[in-house]
């Protein structure tokens, strides 16, 4: 809700994303800090930020598909993988510039996602979750069993560095700016999609697909669109991933990674772009902390199994998903919004 005294007087004003001067200042400040990040913090944190930016693109896509359109998607990592493989094959075999490979990776993933989205026009609920699960397995199978001259099979594909006008994106700082630019474009686009008639159709279908159909929304097309858009985001994120890691292998895109993305939007809050970003930040931070302290715990507590980082990550993420579903299904953003509105209407209770 708006603070007291702010009344939109036109439709345009009502649709605005940045509604108060204070919000504009905060946004500008945030962008400046992000741009200055490489000068403020050390290399390790830049690497983590790179991971966060890429995850943000993918999680925002999942947020549109699952959070806004209500289509359960357990195959986001497979869609990401399709994007990553497309980008790496195009870059290594045809030498296309990343300005083209990244959108093309998005389109390839979108096509793959759309195929599975078509099933969403016939089934829903957890049956849909099962088809996206099948997408995950079929992706895995396809990569491992197609001739290895195509997708590298189990050996993976090495990706040349992104390059433009002789400038190669090799160091983490250079990649950070590339990721930041792409993530900014994609996230701004997501806000645009959500405000458009497509976004309103997504929300209507999520809330009640029968009612949405009666209002004249093409429910089947809307669901397929949601998958298309979500997978496009995953594909773009996958391409960025390929350019950052410079190596693509099938093990980077498993069901577990899909569940990590789901965990991000659950923690952040379903149906909120900012929520997806918050979720990415929380989950990636937890992951980083475990990766840092895990080996120390493993040394001091030898009765626990060896692979403590992966195991601990699973325990915490699984616990987080279950806890949020039980205690706060609407996520952190919901709590924040309650806090914000109670601050704005203080001292009145409502």
């Amino acid at each position: 809700m708006d603070p007291s005294g702010i009344f939109p007087t036109s439709y345009r004003a009502d649709r605005r994303l940045v509604r108060t001067r204070w919000q504009a200042v905060c946004l500008a400040l945030f962008l400046v800090v992000m741009l200055a990040m490489p000068y403020l913090v050390s290399g390790r944190i830049i690497a983590v930020l790179n991971m966060m930016l890429i995850s943000a693109v993918i999680a925002v896509g999942l947020q549109i598909c699952t959070g806004y359109a209500g289509q359960i998607n357990l195959g986001q990592a497979a869609f990401m993988g399709v994007g990553a493989y497309t980008a790496s094959i195009l870059a290594s075999k045809t030498g296309l510039t990343f300005l083209l490979t990244i959108p093309l990776a998005g389109f390839a993933a979108a096509l793959f996602g759309f195929l599975f989205g078509l099933t969403a026009t016939r089934i829903k609920g957890f049956y849909l979750a099962l088809t996206t699960l099948a997408a995950q397995f079929i992706f895995h199978f396809a990569v491992l069993n197609l001739p290895s001259s195509w997708l590298g099979g189990s050996n993976g594909v090495t990706v040349p560095a992104a390059e433009i006008f002789g400038l190669r994106f090799v160091t983490e700082t250079q990649q950070f700016y590339m990721n930041l630019a792409v993530a900014a474009i994609m996230i701004a686009g997501a806000f645009g999609i959500i405000r458009s008639r497509f976004g309103r159709a997504f929300i209507a279908v999520r809330d009640d697909d029968v009612a949405a159909g009666i209002m004249g929304i093409n429910v089947a097309a809307t669901k397929a669109n949601a998958f298309l858009i979500g997978a496009f985001y995953a594909g773009v994120g996958g391409a960025l991933w390929a350019y950052m890691i410079r190596f693509v292998g099938v093990d980077q895109f498993t069901l577990f990674h899909s569940i990590f993305f789901v965990a991000m939007i659950i923690v952040g809050g379903m149906g909120s772009i900012v929520g997806a970003l918050v979720g990415v930040f929380v989950i990636r931070t937890i992951q980083e902390v475990i990766a840092t302290v895990g080996p120390n715990i493993a040394d001091s507590a030898s009765f626990l199994g060896g692979d403590i980082v992966f195991a601990g990550m699973n325990v915490i993420l699984g616990g987080v998903i279950a806890l949020f579903m039980i205690l706060e299904p609407k996520g952190v953003m919901h709590r924040w919004n309650i806090l914000k509105s109670s601050y704005r209407i203080w001292p009145f209770p409502y």
Binding site: F310, G319, I321, A322, M325
Partner: peptide, 27 residues
């Protein structure tokens, strides 16, 4: 609760239980 919550809790359980097994018994 909704189907979504139930499905997501069992998905959470999927990785939670795997993590617990890995922690207790190792790989």
């Amino acid at each position: 609760e909704s189907v979504f919550s139930m499905v997501m809790v069992t998905v959470g359980l999927l990785i939670l239980l795997r993590g617990v097994v890995l922690l207790l018994f190792g790989a």
